[in-house]
Computed example of a mutant assay.
Amino acid sequence: MADAIGPRLYSCYRCQNPVSRHDDIVSKGFQASSGRAFLFTHAMNISLGPRQDRHLITGLHTVADVYCSCCGEELGWKYVKAYEESQKYKEGKVILEKFKIVKENW
């Protein structure tokens, strides 16, 4: 019998479009301009803005803003390239701002 609850998800706070799975969290210790943020290995149902170089707390990164593919709400950003060796682990991963996502199936 299939699990009736399904995976624990995070969804866009505006339209409840699922954007990531709890199992994909790498870290809950990140900071965005608006407050806490989570680092995820994968995100779904998102669209990316143009790539741009941005000076963040941990140095220079090339990032692309992440938007909900359903309602267009900006949810965070994706690390495209890290210029410092100690930050390379972030490449390809996605930051979602805590106050822009809600828990589903918990």
Rank of each mutant, 00 (worst) to 15 (best):
A4M: 13
I5G: 07
G6C: 01
P7E: 11
L9G: 07
Y10D: 02
S11K: 12
C12N: 05
C12V: 08
C12P: 04
C12A: 03
C12K: 06
R14C: 00
C15V: 04
C15E: 07
N17L: 01
N17S: 01
V19I: 15
S20W: 04
S20F: 08
D23R: 15
D24Q: 11
D24G: 00
I25Q: 09
Q31S: 14
A32K: 08
S33E: 11
S34R: 15
G35H: 10
R36G: 12
R36M: 08
F38W: 14
L39C: 02
F40M: 01
F40P: 05
F40I: 04
T41G: 01
T41E: 10
T41Y: 08
T41I: 03
T41M: 04
H42Q: 07
H42K: 13
M44I: 13
M44T: 14
N45F: 00
I46Y: 02
I46V: 15
I46P: 03
L48N: 01
P50K: 11
R51M: 00
H55R: 14
L60P: 04
L60N: 05
H61Q: 09
H61I: 06
A64D: 01
D65K: 11
S69M: 01
S69L: 00
C71M: 06
G72H: 10
E73A: 10
E73Q: 14
E73H: 13
Y79L: 00
V80K: 04
K81W: 07
K81T: 15
K81D: 06
E84W: 09
S86L: 10
K88Q: 12
K88H: 08
K93A: 00
K93W: 00
K93S: 01
V94H: 03
K98R: 14
F99T: 15
